[in-house]
Design a protein around this nucleic acid. Structure first.
Length: 622
RNA sequence: GCGGCUGUAGCUCAGGUGGAUAGAGCAGGAGUUUCCUAAACUCAAGGUCGGAGGUUCGAGUCCUCCCAGCCGCGCCA
């Protein structure tokens, strides 16, 4: 059961109604509870009521059973409501220890429909976070292989949270950190130099990111072959002891000809060897062009890209300074360590973190410290969100603790938007084993399936409409599939379920929206009545979903969890479809016809707004 | 070894400071179209909420222990 408080009852009508009811209950409680402490819940469906108040907390003060209290308050409210015309409350009934509250359907409906009509595309939004400046860092790919399923979840989640935060009035900046340097890039480069000849994405007809990815895979295959023949020469090619095995692998990597070549290339890159840099720029360009294609198809946008190659050297000055101030410590071999274990106030159970290698080179966290500083400086942020998988939870705790230790006052504004992993039916995705689901492939596959479904229903459709509609439907299926499950929940990616267009899916929402649109198109001239007549249960449930939408959006934004909104949109669409099935609209008599049309129009606005926040494209026809 | 997370219907998942009869979707079963889009709607069936204790008027939710699985753990990114 969803609990509401005066703070979470967002939305023009809902806030009014809530405060009114809270005041009346507080008065009826004879000062046992103050209005701001009143906790109302949305009543369970089987009661038929709208709000409920649980009387347990009053039992002590009143020295009576919750059921008796519910009865007495109901009576008190009833007596008062008889005397004056209450704008919200129709009646109150005791049901055991609960007090069920029923809203006045006529007045509530008119108020809500007016709100939606007035606010239109901003209905459901709020201004609670006006003036806040928030950064969303998401996707953040490596430049050695194409985007896959995991990136899609990241992109879809990060975008939805960014939209939700923006819907609350904050200004949101979307960025990524591109890992464009390091040994993984050097591997692709070695492979390209050896086996690429003069081939390019153009001459081979391959998308740039896939083109480079193929050389990365090629390197790995060659390395595997090299390892095999190397192991064959060892005394014990397959040690049982894991530690021995690990040592052996380390020895192999140190002796490997291929790895030496990659390390050599990386060193020349670091030394700014012009030949190496030129090749690096060329190959990265190919990858970025490929990424752009994928992003544009997915509808992902950025305000600013940060590149690891630009920032990886920074951060050392901060570290030197921290050592001088005694915040960081130097280990025996010269490595620099953030002594997090000595500062439990920065985070529980944190171990010390090495922030600089013994040889003086930086680590991932070195540049993360630098990047965090740059972001706050560049954008004057209140909050900096990192959309990164849950496997980095511990690392992110260490990062935040390190930033706090360094004394950055903005460190509390750093937030790790953690999300669950994506598993395939056969387990974890491994690019080396080829068990990845490619982002481009998935989008193409879903669009094809959507195409087939559309042609079955509308064989007459024009090729252009077909392509556009298939794209919108296919993408909605993917996006909703990822947004419906809770943010922290690991996803078992089921290809079959993601291909479905029925039930709890994006296309279901689109279909409902298309039905609404179709109805309004066919309505001809009609005028919104000043007083609507909507009293049927099926109508009232649709009104209820409108009433609650702003609170749901605010809640999803505050918890950074789009699944709250996704679930609400599905439920609301379902209730609309029941209304559709049970009650005629165009064929109804006045005043029902125009009243229902007004309801459909408002429901369409609300559903469309909710869908756009999640980046599900509302479409007019299906 | 240590830290964190997860375990709810055949499958995939919801379940918000403990509170009314634990809810969806899919799969399987039975239906609904002379009527506004059947990508819809209705009904039936399906659950010892991993196990055992405990706290409480009340536990899927809190505490302890156990079992199973996943993620991570100072010079990888």
């Amino acid at each position: 059961m969803r609990a509401l408080t005066p703070e979470t009852a967002i939305g023009p009508a809902l806030a009014d109604a809530y405060h009114h009811l809270a005041n009346r209950l507080a008065a009826a409680s004879r000062a046992a509870v103050e209005a701001p402490d009143i906790l109302l819940t949305l009543a369970p469906e089987h009661t038929g009521a709208d709000f409920a108040f649980a009387c347990f907390p009053l039992a002590k003060a009143w020295r009576r059973s919750p059921a008796q209290i519910a009865g007495e308050i109901a009576e008190a409210l009833h007596a008062e409501t008889e005397q004056e015309d209450d704008p919200w409350l129709a009646r109150a009934e005791a049901a055991g220890p609960y007090l069920n509250l029923y809203l006045r359907r006529d007045l509530t409906t008119n108020t809500v429909l007016k709100d939606v009509g007035r606010l239109r595309e901003t209905y459901g939004h709020s201004k609670r976070q006006d003036g806040r400046r928030v950064m969303m860092e998401y996707v953040s790919p490596n430049t050695n292989k194409p985007l896959h399923l995991g990136h899609i979840r990241n992109a879809v989640l990060g975008r939805a949270v960014a939209n939700l935060v923006a819907s609350q009035g904050a200004e949101v900046f979307r960025t990524d950190i591109i890992n464009d340097r390091g040994i993984h890039i050097a591997k692709s480069m070695v492979a390209y130099l050896r086996w690429g000849a003069e081939s390019t994405p153009e001459t081979s007809g391959t998308k740039g990111d896939h083109f480079v990815g193929e050389y990365y895979v090629r390197f790995d295959q060659a390395l595997r072959d090299e390892r095999e023949s190397w192991l064959a020469q060892q005394d014990d090619p397959d040690p049982v002891d894991e530690r021995v095995k690990k040592k052996q692998e380390e020895r192999f990597l140190a002796e490997s000809e291929l790895m030496s070549a990659a390390r050599d290339l990386l060193q020349r890159w670091e030394a700014e060897d012009e030949d190496v840099r030129a090749l690096w720029r060329r190959m990265n360009r190919w990858v970025y062009d490929g990424f752009d294609t994928t992003y544009s198809r997915l509808g992902i946008e950025f305000d600013r890209h940060y590149y690891e190659s630009d920032i990886y050297r920074g951060g050392k000055a901060v570290i030197r300074d921290a050592v001088a101030r005694g915040l960081f410590e130097t280990a025996d071999n010269g490595a620099i360590v953030a002594p997090l274990s000595k500062h439990p106030e920065l985070g529980k159970n944190l171990q010390d973190k090495v922030v600089q290698r013994a040889d003086g080179t930086g680590l991932y966290i070195t540049q993360d410290i630098n990047l965090a500083t740059i972001k706050f400086r560049d954008f004057d942020l209140d909050r900096s969100i990192y959309c990164i998988g849950s496997e980095q939870n511990y690392y992110m705790q260490q990062l935040v603790a390190t930033l706090r230790l360094l004394g950055f006052e903005w460190a509390d504004g750093v937030f790790h938007l953690s999300y669950g992993m994506v598993y395939l039916p056969e387990g974890k995705m491994k690019s080396r084993e080829g068990t990845v689901v490619d982002a481009d492939d998935l989008m193409a596959e879903l669009a094809d399936l959507a195409k087939a479904e559309i042609l079955e229903r509308s064989p007459e459709i024009s090729p252009e409409d077909l392509a556009n509609r298939a794209e919108a439907i296919g993408l909605a299926a993917i996006v909703f599939n990822f947004l419906l499950v809770g943010r922290e929940t690991d996803i078992q990616f089921d290809p079959k379920a993601s291909l479905a267009f029925e039930g709890k899916t994006g296309p279901y929402l689109q279909y409902t929206y298309a039905r609404m649109s179709s109805l309004l198109r066919k309505a001809g001239d009609w005028r919104q009545p000043s007083e609507t007549r909507l009293t049927e249960d099926a109508e009232w449930r649709v009104v209820g979903d409108l009433l609650v939408l702003p609170a749901v959006v605010a809640d999803a934004a505050d918890s950074h969890d789009p699944s709250r909104l996704a679930a609400h949109l599905h439920d609301a669409a379902q209730r609309f479809n029941v209304f559709w099935h049970e009650l005629p609209v165009l064929h109804a008599d006045e005043p029902h016809r125009s009243s229902r049309l007004a309801l459909v129009q408002a429901a369409r606005t609300a559903l469309g707004n909710g869908m756009r926040l999640l980046a599900l494209e509302p479409i007019e026809e299906m």
